[in-house]
Design a protein around this nucleic acid. Structure first.
Lengths: 122, 122
DNA sequence: ATTATATACAACCATTTGGTTTCATGTCAA
DNA sequence: TTGACATGAAACCAAATGGTTGTATATAAT
């Protein structure tokens, strides 16, 4: 009941405008109209993005008089972090890859030890 | 020239099937048909997802005879990690929030010190 | 040479997405 | 109470998404 929203965190952050919203709300709580002034799109469009973010609980709005003030609620991003953590072993440093390889046996990239490419630059 | 693809990392991972693909390819390099067998959707659909992942350089395919073998290339996920790192200060532990608050002065959540809600439970 | 396998590519389709405009409602201020 | 302001909500739209089927091409295998 607490979850099962139509939009999950992954989808919520997929849109650039939505990411910009999060960034903006990280600084301080803001009413919709204020927020809209930072975007080239309509107020209504911003409101929709906000409601999608709210669905993912990445943002929370409280009514204050005639305006509704939104603020960041970053905690759900832990899901993303957890998801990411699994993949860190595949790039972080070769040591952790080797560690993982040894611990879990089998698996791919048997050649990681002698490879020297993947500069990851740019 | 190195980037500017139509699909970025954020979009690439937004789809559940695509995330499942990444997970699968993390284990080992696999040809499309093999991969498809793990999904309820058509081989063609899987191929499309793969090409989207490839656009984001999260996956790389090499031709091997008549088949094309794909494997994970996790490095672009660093972008996600970097993006995330900014938000960690807003949930990780109250200490780092306080640290950030002190270091950067101003900003929201002046009340973090005395608040005791945000159980983050489920 | 023929057939089966693995993929590529094009066309098509329903639904979702990101926007818009218009109208209604609630609240603050004069 | 009469506006002005801030938001909510509905209707509509073009384009993108996630799929499908059908056809073509390259490579194995017999």
């Amino acid at each position: 009941m607490t979850s099962a929203a139509k939009h999950d965190v992954f989808q919520a952050i997929a849109d650039p405008n939505r990411r910009k919203l999060l960034k903006l709300l990280a600084e301080k709580e803001l009413p919709i109209s204020e927020i809209s002034s930072h975007f080239p799109i309509s107020r209504t469009a911003v409101a929709k993005h906000l409601s999608i973010l709210a669905e993912a609980d990445l943002v929370r709005g409280r009514k204050a008089g005639r305006e509704k003030r939104y603020s960041l609620h970053a905690e759900p991003l832990t899901e993303l972090k957890d998801w990411l953590s699994f993949y860190e072993q595949f790039w972080d440093n070769k040591l952790s890859m080797l560690k993982h390889f040894v611990e879990n046996g089998s698996h791919r990239n048997i050649d990681i030890v002698q490879r020297k490419d993947e500069q990851q630059g740019e």
